[in-house]
Amino acid sequence: MNLRRSAHIDHAVALSPDYGTVGVVASSSATETSVTAGAHIDVRGACKTYPNGTIALQPVNLQISKGEFVSLLGPSGCGKSTLLRVIAGLSAPTQGDVKIPAGDRRAFVFQDPTLLPWRTVEGNAHLVCELEGVGKAERRTRVAEALKMVGLTGFEQVYPRNLSGGMKMRLSLARALALRPQLFLMDEPFSAVDEITREGLQDELLRIWGSEGFTSVFVTHNLYEAVYLSQRVVVMSARPGRIKKIFDIPFDFPRRPVLRSTHEFAALSAEISHYLREGMDE
């Protein structure tokens, strides 16, 4: 784990809000070229303009290393979800592109647990693997493993309506984990659960990330959540959505809840908070 933490530090952060749009379309034909050395996700000049003219995202450059945990932080309308959806392939960038090694499995966790109410816990956990064509026997092993990871073993035959908010979200995580993704993309997954449950889920997520080694991109509007979880926090600002600044979070892993009450944590949070406010005033 510590190896991974230091791996990203020498990795240059590309940040150029003024990235020219001329010729960007042409670059999308160069998808075959290898990604930047060490970068797992390579976002190059990706931007998103909706048909009605709204600019959701100005051209963004962002490289994320393999196994890194990065948060996208910002107020609503800053394009953080748009950027995540572009990385996920759920939304095509208007210009620019996103390079991800071919064949890498991407899992997405939504803000809502998005469970199928007519399927049991087990049935829901199977869904993503099922859609990706994972064989039945293999799926069973993976689902059992994923449910164990999130502490839902024994709840296989329960229907989602009988689960608490926290358990639903854990199931949503398990469904994604069963795919054994190389890329784990999360869109404000813990924003709808209470504070105590959220902190528990954050620790679980870090523990699973530590053991599974996937690359994480985590969208949140919660500053402390971003700082607690991430190796890097990408601060974005709104109207139009763009990357404002990227912070390295130097705290060691595994992180403990007590970190939240340290002076260093508070100081770094305050600094990021300052940038966040600045982004909102503009």
Binding site: K148, M149, V150, G151, G154, F155, E156, Q157, V158, N162, L163, S164, G165, G166, M167, I196, T197, G200, E204, R207, S211
Partner: peptide, 17 residues
């Protein structure tokens, strides 16, 4: 893998039937 702590978990049997 350490066991997960489940603060919000009633027993599965109670929920299933």
């Amino acid at each position: 893998m350490t066991a997960t702590q489940t603060v919000d978990a009633p027993t599965a049997a109670a929920l299933a039937s």
